[in-house]
Write a protein that binds this DNA or RNA. Sequence first.
DNA 1: TGTACATCAGTGAACGCGCGTTCACTGATGTAC
DNA 2: TGTACATCAGTGAACGCGCGTTCACTGATGTAC
Lengths: 190, 190
Amino acid sequence: MVRYAKEHKQVTRQRILEKAGHRFKQDGLDGSGVSTLMSDAGLTNGAFYAHFASKDDLVANVVADQLRTQIAAYDTLRPGRTGLEDLIREYLSPGHRDNPGAGCPSAALLDEIGRCGDATKQAYTDGARRILDEIAARLTPGDPQSARGKAIGLYTMLVGTMQLSRALSDRTFADEVLEKGIENALAFMG
Amino acid sequence: MVRYAKEHKQVTRQRILEKAGHRFKQDGLDGSGVSTLMSDAGLTNGAFYAHFASKDDLVANVVADQLRTQIAAYDTLRPGRTGLEDLIREYLSPGHRDNPGAGCPSAALLDEIGRCGDATKQAYTDGARRILDEIAARLTPGDPQSARGKAIGLYTMLVGTMQLSRALSDRTFADEVLEKGIENALAFMG
DNA sequence: TGTACATCAGTGAACGCGCGTTCACTGATGTAC
DNA sequence: TGTACATCAGTGAACGCGCGTTCACTGATGTAC
């Protein structure tokens, strides 16, 4: 009845999603072609449409997958504010800046996502809600709802700081932005 | 000796830069083709290379021009912190969010600029320095250097907040991000 | 003042190329008997 | 156990299209006399 292990196609699909996530974050959504993406996954271009309806469909699914991964990472942090402080320092590190492919999808792609169709923005919206909830819960464990605004401020500051640091050609200046960004984020979370 | 008014070509070049700025901010750097850009300026594709060496060269010049415009806008603000508060409210308005073509180049393009070549990043770096100086000078007129870090925090928060609001498909959520963003920015500048 | 000429910003067709997408096919696998 | 068949993930060539770029040309202008 089943010619391949029944998870085979799902496994391949997941591999495409993950490799595409890396490539998109490195070269941009418009900057990554379907043939390159498939070759990253060890396949040829033709197989693409057995997994996704279109490139737009892939983008929406990659965005959902990327944010899912981000959210899962919050579980590995130390609990409460301490974990958030660790996160800030790791997020605003030169290592993260210099390896966007392995990093935060918002830092790498947020302005491009703003120009995407509704499916992609929907996927991003769902993920963003959960990330902000996660941050808020750590800011004020007793009453997460009250920290919603602060969570938005902290997240946007992290994303904006990383993007700014990446856009600077002057290394010293770019490093300064990260360092001041850590001070700013820690001060803002209070 | 001079067949056209001697500023004629410069005027045309400036028109290309401004129209391209609008288009780039609306559709992205990769999403805007040379033919479209020239047609926006009321010209045909062939004339492009009489003004710029390549599309990359145009991008670098547009980025420089856009940041020049942003910096000039600081002169029209009320002096000191009051002007900064006005700026925050205007920046984080639904009007700005819904018309990226006329808005802030960082909010529209910052992650794409991070993937550009050195000429573009250089142009961005020069402009960013001057914008941060402008903000710092308004935060603490007595000692701008001490407010450098805070200027970075304020600017990255504004940029990140606008990008986030634009990426959300849920209007209510997107509006909430802007409103909380204003509170956050005002609280952060102290 | 009128005509021939030089200048040069801008035209528009054409270039090769890589894009997203389609499709007839392959070949490894499990099933049937 | 061995052979014929059905399945289907993946192949790779081909599609039309728009990209960035080139180039021979146009035509409006100011100059020369």
